[in-house]
C-alpha cells in the first residue's frame, strides 16, 4: 500500500429490503455513497481508475447481515467519527455504516482475511430438529455435495467448510446456528448446505420455500483463535 494512504475500516448492516441486493449492487451503492459524502478517497492508477476500496466476502442475494465490512483508502487522515457521520448521512438506512476505525495498511485484503462466518437460518415451523440433525450427520459422512448455482453445478467440500452447528427454538420456529469457514477456493452457501441436509434427512419436504438467513458475525481465524474485525484497531461507534 502507498505510505501516504490511510486505511479505514467500516462495519455496516445489510438489512430490510436491501437484503435482496447482490454483492455487486451493494458495492456500487456504497461506492456511490462514498462519492456523495465527498470523502477524500484514493483512486487506483491505470486503465480503469477506480476507487480504492475492499469488501468482505460476498453475501448471497436475499441474505441479510448484522455486520459486513469494507476498507476504504483515504488520501487524508480525517477524524473517524466525522467520516462515519458523513458517510452515514449519504448512505441508505439499510446499509448505513455503524462503526469505523483506521487499520494497519499492511493487513491482508478483507475478503481473504475474514474467513469465519456465523449464520442464523430460519428452518420454519415444520422442521423436526432430530430429523434435520440426522441430515447433517449423513451429509458430513458423505463429505461433499453438489448443487446448481444458476445453471452451473458446484461441488462443496463439507469437511473443510463446515465448522459447527446448533439449534435454538424461537416462537415455535426452529433456528439453526451455523459456523462456516471460507476457503481460498470459495465459500459454502449456508442455504445450499441446509438444503443438502434436508435432502438427505428423512423429512426432505419439510424445508421452507424461502430460507431466511442472516450472517450474524465474521471473524479472522488465527491459529485457532477468533480475531474480531476491529481487534486490530479501536472502533469508533455511533449510536
Amino acid at each position: 500500500m502507498r505510505q501516504d494512504l490511510h486505511r479505514i475500516r467500516f462495519a455496516f448492516p445489510k438489512s430490510d429490503r436491501l437484503a435482496f441486493l447482490g454483492h455487486l449492487e451493494v458495492i456500487s451503492t456504497i461506492e456511490r455513497s462514498i462519492r456523495r459524502a465527498d470523502l477524500p478517497f484514493a483512486v487506483s492508477n491505470g486503465f480503469a481508475r477506480r476507487m480504492k476500496v475492499q469488501f468482505s466476502s460476498a453475501l448471497p442475494v436475499g441474505v441479510s447481515s448484522k455486520a459486513e465490512y469494507f476498507d476504504l483508502f483515504l488520501t487524508e487522515h480525517l477524524d473517524e467519527e466525522h467520516v462515519l457521520d458523513l458517510l452515514g448521512r449519504y448512505s441508505p438506512t439499510a446499509l448505513r455504516p455503524f462503526a469505523a476505525a483506521y487499520v494497519d495498511g499492511s493487513l491482508p485484503a478483507l475478503e481473504a482475511w475474514l474467513d469465519r462466518s456465523s449464520w442464523v437460518l430460519d428452518l420454519g415451523t415444520s422442521t423436526d430438529a432430530d430429523a434435520f440433525e440426522e441430515g447433517v450427520r449423513r451429509l458430513r459422512e458423505q463429505g461433499s455435495f453438489t448443487y446448481l448455482r444458476g445453471t452451473k453445478p458446484k461441488t462443496v467440500d463439507v469437511g473443510e467448510s463446515y465448522v459447527s452447528h446448533g439449534f435454538v427454538a424461537s416462537d415455535g420456529r426452529l433456528m439453526l446456528d451455523l459456523e462456516t469457514l471460507i476457503l481460498p477456493t470459495g465459500a459454502m452457501r449456508p442455504e445450499a448446505f441446509v438444503r443438502a441436509c434436508y435432502g438427505l434427512s428423512d423429512q426432505p419436504d419439510s424445508a421452507p420455500e424461502y430460507l431466511r438467513c442472516v450472517r450474524v458475525a465474521q471473524h479472522h481465524l488465527d491459529d485457532g483463535n477468533l480475531v474480531e474485525p476491529f481487534q486490530v484497531s479501536l472502533p469508533k461507534l455511533v449510536d
Binding site: 435482496f20 447482490g22 449492487e25 436475499g62
Partner: peptide, 19 residues
C-alpha cells in the same frame, strides 16, 4: 410481493427506496 422476492431473478428490480 415481499415473499416472492427470494423466488425471482434480480429482486432488486422491485425494491424502491433508491437514493
Amino acid at each position: 410481493i415481499e415473499p416472492l422476492l427470494p423466488l425471482v431473478e434480480k429482486p432488486a428490480r422491485y425494491l424502491d427506496h433508491e437514493w
